[in-house]
Computed example of a mutant assay.
Amino acid sequence: MTTVMQMKCACPHCLCIVNLSDSVMKDGRAFCGDACANGHPPGSSGCGHTGCGCYS
Rank of each mutant, 00 (worst) to 15 (best):
G51H: 11
L15C: 05
G48M: 08
R29F: 11
K8Y: 04
P41N: 12
K8P: 03
C54G: 05
T50S: 11
V18Y: 06
P12I: 08
S44C: 03
S23D: 14
S21L: 09
G39F: 04
G48I: 10
L15D: 15
D27R: 08
P12C: 03
C11Q: 04
M5Y: 07
C54Y: 02
C9Y: 07
D34G: 03
C11H: 10
S45C: 01
D34Q: 13
I17S: 07
S45L: 07
P41D: 10
D34K: 14
H40S: 02
N38W: 03
G53L: 03
D22A: 01
V24R: 04
C47K: 00
C14K: 09
G28R: 02
C47M: 03
N38L: 10
T3F: 02
A30R: 02
C36S: 04
D27Y: 10
D22F: 09
M1A: 12
V4M: 03
C36Q: 08
H13K: 13
C52H: 05
H49V: 14
C14V: 07
G43F: 13
C47P: 01
G51C: 02
G33L: 01
V4G: 00
L15M: 09
D34S: 13
F31R: 05
C36G: 06
K26G: 00
R29C: 08
L20S: 02
V4Q: 06
R29P: 00
G28T: 06
D34V: 14
K26Q: 13
H40T: 10
S44L: 00
C36E: 12
S21R: 10
A10T: 06
K8S: 13
T50D: 13
C9S: 04
M1C: 09
V18Q: 10
M1L: 08
Y55E: 14
H40R: 01
C11I: 04
G43L: 11
M25V: 15
R29W: 04
C9T: 09
G39H: 01
G33M: 00
A10C: 07
M5C: 02
R29Q: 14
G53F: 06
H13E: 15
Y55H: 15
P12M: 05
G46K: 02
T3R: 04
F31G: 09
